[in-house]
């Protein structure tokens, strides 16, 4: 989600520092901006793009434990460039932030890491693929076969990810528009990883299997001035279809976008205005009212579903805080997925 880009800029350690960045959503200050018609180059584009302001490698997974319980995990690496260049040493403008979480129906554990790229504490290389911050890693010979690990004070995980389908490009061939003003990002996903591995929890290890979804996105000017937050869905239906959908909330009205992904990976972009996203119920978490039950509709796809959080308290109390957790889907289609919500104060 592009909007996370702005989030990263706001993430930085002290709130006061962040204020200087509040206006960054609107101008690119020498950074490159996404162009329609861009031809992706792989594996190079799996790596970092330092001349763009913001970028992330975002993995979420819905897992089932050998104890019969449902689990959600998150592994995210954000890159934020203070200036459009890369250099060695402490003063490199490339900053990195990692977020990791394990969610169950009654617990939500998370951790955060912040590092500088210039000294090798965090970074991404494309070939062979490796993304890391501190001891958290996502790496493998290529994007189709990855190992994923992270640790927090009270959780950890080691997972193997194997792609079961092709990459999916959102919007116009990976050029994903984010507002009526034309702000956009490069955005593609690998929505079909099969996952096996181990979760380390305070009560002991749990063997898990399940499905994961990876988002790759980078940009330099992600948001319109009036946009204050977003709701983002990645859903896997029992039919084998998948849906990526988001709603950017703005003073001048919402901006929506979605991608319908068929079981074989064929993707269909759904433009602004088609998605109906309606909060049905809020829960009080971290002192805010967060919508934890939603109605989602896409009339053209005969989609009318209800989405409910596995754990309403999946609040990421990180430097920049937001809600992110696994969801269940019922209605015209049933399934599971992940939901992210920001900007609820």
């Amino acid at each position: 989600m592009n909007v996370r880009l702005l989030a990263f800029l706001l993430f930085l350690p002290c709130a006061a520092l962040a204020q200087g960045f509040a206006g960054l959503g609107t101008d690119a200050e020498g950074f490159k901006v996404p162009q329609r018609g861009y031809q992706f180059q792989f594996p190079a584009d799996h790596g970092a793009h330092p001349t763009f302001r913001i970028e992330w490698w975002y993995v979420t997974a819905n897992l089932m434990g050998d104890d019969g319980a449902e689990y959600g995990i998150q592994w995210t690496l954000f890159r934020s460039a203070l200036k459009p260049l890369d250099s060695d040493g402490w003063q490199s403008p490339q900053l990195w932030m990692g977020h990791a979480a394990v969610t169950t129906s009654d617990s939500h554990r998370f951790a955060e890491r912040i590092a500088r790229g210039g000294i090798g504490q965090a970074g991404v290389t494309a070939n062979p693929f490796a993304a890391w911050i501190d001891e958290w890693r996502m790496d493998g010979p290529d994007m189709d076969s990855l190992t994923l690990s992270a640790r927090g004070a009270d959780f950890g995980y080691d997972l193997k990810l194997n792609a079961q389908g092709p990459l999916v490009f959102h919007g116009d061939g990976g050029y994903s528009v984010k507002s009526a003003d034309g702000q956009a990002s490069y955005y593609y996903s690998q929505p079909a990883y099969a996952v096996t591995g181990t979760l380390q929890l305070p009560d002991g290890d749990v063997q898990v299997t399940g499905k994961a979804w990876m988002d790759r996105e980078w940009s330099s000017q992600p948001l319109s001035e009036d946009q204050t937050g977003w709701d983002w869905f990645s859903l896997r239906f029992d039919s084998g279809d998948r849906l990526m959908a988001f709603r950017l909330r703005g003073a001048r009205g919402d901006y929506t976008s979605a991608t319908w992904i068929e079981p074989d990976g064929k993707a269909r972009a759904i433009d602004d205005g088609a998605l109906v996203a309606e909060p049905l119920e809020t829960a009080r978490t971290a002192g805010r009212n967060i919508p934890v039950r939603w109605r989602l509709g896409l009339p053209d796809e005969d989609l009318d579903i209800e989405i409910s959080a596995l754990n309403p308290n999946a609040w990421m109390g990180t430097s920049f805080s937001y809600w992110e957790g696994p969801v269940r889907v019922t209605g015209s289609h049933s399934g599971i997925g992940y939901l992210e919500m920001t900007g609820y104060e």
Binding site: L12, P13, A16, Q19, G20, L82, Q91, P93
Partner: peptide
């Protein structure tokens, strides 16, 4: 977190992270 980085003096400009971290 250090107070010096977060508490700018009255009237002084807020320290900017980009200025702080890069040359």
């Amino acid at each position: 977190a250090l107070p010096a980085f977060s508490e700018a003096r009255d009237g002084a400009t807020q320290p900017d992270l980009a200025e702080l971290l890069t040359a």
